[in-house]
Amino acid sequence: MSTPRFLDLPPGVSPKRIETPEGVFAALEALPGSGLPDRWPALLVPGYTGSKEDFLSVLQTLAQAGRRVVAIDLRGQFETPGPDDPAAYTCAALGRDVDSLVAVVGGGEPVHLLGHSFGGLVTRETVLDGTGKLASYTLMSSGPAGMVGAREVAGRRMLEKMPQLGLEAMWTEKMEPDALRAGVPEEIVAFLRRRLFANSLVGLECMGRAVLDADDRVDELAETGLSTLVLYGEHDDGWPPRLQAEMADRLDCECVVVPGAVHSPAVEAPETTAAALTRFWNTAESTMLAR
């Protein structure tokens, strides 16, 4: 496994391959400067068309609080291989993958679990399954059900074309124009293209449908009683901020709005995002240890 040369890894962050009963997963691991974590670990799960690199800007800061932090590629994403079986890419199947990762990363300790965007729909399956030993749960820029609004419309249009036109249509009609309009540097645009074409096409089609058609399971999630945080950018264009705020109310949990951020707070406001996560994780640990 290799990280693109133009995405320099911060000190203390290294590529790993994590072996689980469900398969081998590509990961980035961050450790405290001492190399000896004294807090419970965290597992970060990316969104649709994303990867572990989406968390690069926060990994080192999160680890410096004293914990091991692991970001992964889901099955069929970027550097984690996946089969051509559509059944492998349902939220439930991917949630079982995350269950196995929680067990390995935790090594017997509780794990702070975070899901970004589509990763939130996947990780809530892990939470609802109830077998993982979890310290807390964070929904980052995710929603109560399938994505709505302009991204939903664009996503459905793209899924219609994907079987005939493949990944080239997704890249030339959507992802590349979006990146160029946003002023993304040329080398990062090159990485985004490389990452997209490394994905499983079957996985992208199935996960694309899942992110658009997911059922609302917030009430079930609220019944778990797990310490939960809803965090999103004030200008989120995935799920409307209002909808995410309502989800936090339904969960009766803390809600953090990241100023200036859109759909990727870990990229757009890394220091603010890392500070909010560290505070939440530390509080969740203290609460569990006090019981």
Rank of each mutant, 00 (worst) to 15 (best):
L201Q: 12
Q77P: 01
A88Q: 08
A179Y: 02
I18V: 13
L101A: 10
L59N: 07
L134G: 00
E109G: 07
Y89T: 00
D73E: 13
A198S: 15
G238V: 11
W40A: 08
T228K: 09
L31D: 03
A290T: 13
G66W: 01
D216Q: 05
M175R: 11
V202D: 06
R151W: 06
P15F: 11
V153G: 15
E125V: 04
P4Y: 01
R195T: 06
A150I: 14
G155C: 11
M175T: 10
R96I: 02
S141P: 03
L56N: 02
A92M: 06
G107M: 01
E254K: 08
P240K: 15
E220T: 10
E234R: 14
L28D: 00
A30M: 05
L159H: 14
D73K: 09
K161I: 05
S264H: 10
W281T: 09
D84M: 08
T228R: 10
G155L: 09
E246Y: 09
C255L: 05
T123Y: 01
K16F: 15
R209I: 04
E19K: 11
V153D: 09
L167Q: 11
L204V: 11
A88W: 08
D38F: 09
G12L: 02
P270E: 04
V102T: 08
D54R: 15
K161L: 15
S34W: 06
V267L: 13
K161Q: 14
R181Y: 11
T131D: 15
A210C: 12
V230N: 01
G260V: 05
P41S: 03
A26I: 05
S136K: 08
V102R: 00
D213A: 04
R181W: 03
Q77D: 13
G149D: 02
K161V: 04
G33S: 11
T138H: 04
L62C: 15
A190V: 11
V202F: 13
Q164A: 15
E285K: 06
A222I: 14
E79R: 13
V98G: 08
G203C: 06
T224V: 11
Q64S: 13
A210K: 02
G166R: 09
L212T: 05
A42W: 04
L121C: 10
E176K: 14
E187M: 11
L229Y: 05
G183P: 04
G149Q: 05
G82T: 07
A274M: 07
V189N: 06
F78E: 04
S142I: 04
G149S: 03
P259K: 15
E53C: 03
A274T: 04
V184Y: 05
T278G: 09
E19G: 15
L9D: 02
R217A: 14
L114D: 00
R209F: 08
E19D: 12
L229G: 04
T20M: 02
R39N: 08
L74W: 07
C91Y: 05
A266W: 07
D219S: 11
G203K: 00
L139Y: 10
H235A: 14
V148P: 07
L59W: 00
T272V: 15
L139K: 01
E152Y: 13
T287F: 13
P21M: 03
D236T: 09
M175A: 08
D216C: 08
E285S: 01
L201F: 11
L114V: 06
G76R: 02
F25L: 05
F78Q: 07
P15Q: 12
H116Y: 10
L192G: 08
A269E: 05
L165K: 14
